[in-house]
Design a protein around this nucleic acid. Structure first.
Length: 539
RNA sequence: GCGGGUGUAGCUCAGUGGUAGAGCUCCACGUUGCCAACGUGGCCGUCGUGGGUUCAAAUCCCAUCGCCCGCUCCA
């Protein structure tokens, strides 16, 4: 099946069964925002709970078999504006853009360069090209050559170029600039800031003083609280702080269903360690995170860890691995999670901007090396002018490994992964198309459905009693409508892994059948062991 | 942001100026002893939204919004 058709079917099912709706749909919707319906919210909650349990409460053992310390955090979405100045988002997110009035193309103004044409050509013109784009530069040179020839001059190579930004404010200068994709000057607009952070105002008066941003990532709340956590919770390096929460980016063009939304939820860990161990922890988290997706049923051929090339890496990063999934809407793998080695970039930036010390003192290391030292006081020891390398063994800015996962993206991947069309026998034993969502039992929004085989002879009452017992422990459904076959199929379509049926034999000996969604196989078990059985199966 | 396509019931669609339809789904009752059975009855649309043309608009025109595809963007 063509992948776009498959994606449409998934979107359709999500709407029909109440996984995902378009936000404010009755008013015509709003681009880039989505609502999770009754089943979607269960699915996403199961995903977040699985992450929290597997990464925060009970993370895998470390590289040397040691326990890992992880704590959680839930920060406010709106923070002091200075946080975003320190992180670089306040400037980095305000990309200046300029438009070409002729071609309607839009360029990042800071990526446009201009050079002057032949100095004796009148009127004097400048030619714009896209930085780093050979074709664009060649084209601009060609245009300059042509203009020079027409004036009887010869233009060879631009002597030097400057950023368009340096003259974009000056209308006269702009009118001399020939845009990258036009022949005539004066079609480029001035550079306008293009802010990718949502803005609002804290306080009733709307002015520049109380301008605040909706966080574009959850990470900075963790860095801003690094000292609070260290001081309050007895954690020792290495340790991680985890957070699940909403983040907002005013994306230029939200696309591909929920994949690129303007409001989304992140599941982030900032793992703090000694600089000398950072590579080991980077590799640890890269592998742990990749494996996590596999244990929740993502097939390995769809999942691809991709180490970023040196050119792609952010300037501060020692290494980043994108964990990518092959969604049906694309021929290429798309990012589910980035595991980034961020060095000391973030804590250092916050240290500088906040003027607060975010240095970590490793008391264990200090005490371990006590023998052979004349003093036990670190402050006193520092007065002896130890080498920076010596000091850094005990006091340092921790390095950070950041596994940052998109909860909505993984939810979408789970939906895509689960979507299956197979064959199942009908009442006559003939195979018919079946639509089944093969969710991992841990993630399935409904864990089990309880049916009376028919609506008589006390079966509904018995089934309902079992339902009442189970719903204290799991999200379960009771259904007595129509033929049992139809009820099985309904549950298949929402991915319920187990169906329990009360039949005539139940009324005799208190056993029920439990039917497996994927194999259709039924087993008979005592009604008293259903709860325990489900616990074992769901994990 | 630009260009192209598209929008009628929960779903799939029919309806080219003259009383908004079909199948499926869904609900109720009956029937039904294991994989979308059957019977009867029922719910559901101011045709994406707002204007305009017309005696009359789902249908023609304009605008707008959403979705899809391609470009652009993705710190």
């Amino acid at each position: 099946m063509p992948s776009s058709d498959l994606m449409e079917k998934i979107v359709s099912l999500c709407r029909k069964r109440g996984f995902i709706f378009q936000s404010s749909e009755i008013y015509g919707g709003i681009n880039g925002f989505w609502d999770y319906g009754p089943l979607g919210v269960e699915l996403k909650k199961n995903i977040k709970d699985a992450w929290w349990r597997d990464m925060v409460r009970n993370p895998p053992l470390g590289p040397n078999g040691q326990e890992i310390t992880m704590v959680g955090l839930d920060c406010s979405i709106i923070m002091n504006r200075k946080v975003w100045v320190a992180s670089g988002h306040a400037s980095g997110f305000q990309d200046p853009m300029c438009d070409c009035k002729e071609t309607k193309k839009r360029y990042r103004a800071d990526q446009l360069e201009v050079f002057s044409g032949h100095p004796e050509v009148n009127p004097p013109l400048m030619y714009a090209f896209i930085k780093g784009d050979e074709e664009s530069l060649k084209l601009a040179i060609k245009k300059a050559e042509k203009a020079a020839r027409a004036a009887g001059k010869k233009f060879t190579q631009p002597v030097h170029s400057v950023s368009y930004m340096t003259l974009a404010k000056n209308a006269d200068a702009r009118n001399q600039v020939v845009g990258p994709d036009v022949e005539v000057p004066g079609t480029l607009t001035e550079a306008r800031p293009f802010n990718l952070m949502f803005e609002t105002h804290a306080g009733a008066i709307k002015d520049d003083d109380n301008l605040v941003y909706l966080r574009p990532e959850t990470a900075q709340g963790i860095f801003a609280n690094f000292k609070n956590v260290v001081d309050s919770s007895r954690v020792k390096i290495p340790f991680g702080i985890a957070q699940i929460g909403k983040a907002f980016r005013n994306e230029v063009n939200p696309r591909n269903y929920t994949f690129r939304s303007r409001e989304f939820e992140q599941m982030e860990i900032e793992f703090f360690c000694h600089p000398s161990e950072s590579r080991m922890w980077y590799e640890y988290w890269r592998d742990v995170r990749k494996n996590w997706y596999s244990t929740l049923g993502i097939r390995s051929e769809k999942l691809k860890p991709r180490e970023q090339t040196p050119e792609e890496l952010a300037h501060y990063s020692v290494g980043t691995t994108d964990i990518e999934y092959l969604f049906p809407f694309s021929d290429e793998h798309q990012e589910l999670e980035g595991v980034a080695h961020r060095g000391d970039f973030d804590l250092k930036a916050h240290m500088e901007h906040s003027k607060q010390s975010l240095l970590y003192f490793d008391e264990d290391a200090w005490n371990r090396d006590a023998a052979g030292r004349s003093t036990n006081s670190f402050v006193a020891w520092l007065k002896g002018n130890p080498s920076p390398e010596e000091v850094a063994k005990y006091q340092f800015i921790p390095h950070v490994i950041e596994p940052s996962a998109g909860a909505d993206r993984f939810t979408l991947a789970v939906l895509c992964e689960a979507y299956t069309e197979d064959k199942a026998p009908n009442a006559d034993g003939k195979l018919e198309e079946r639509l089944v969502m093969k969710f991992h039992p841990r993630l399935a929004p409904v864990k089990a459905a309880i049916f009376p085989l028919v609506k008589k002879d006390g079966m509904p009452e018995k089934a309902y009693a079992l339902y009442r017992e189970l719903k204290a422990h799991f999200n379960v459904q009771y259904d007595d409508g129509g033929a049992v076959g139809r009820r099985y199929r309904r549950q298949d379509e929402i991915g319920t892994p187990f169906c329990i049926t009360i039949d005539g034999e139940t009324m005799q000996n208190d056993t029920v059948t439990i039917r497996d969604r994927d194999t259709l196989v039924q087993r008979r078990i005592p009604i008293s062991s259903v709860l325990h059985e489900l616990r074992t199966l769901i994990g």
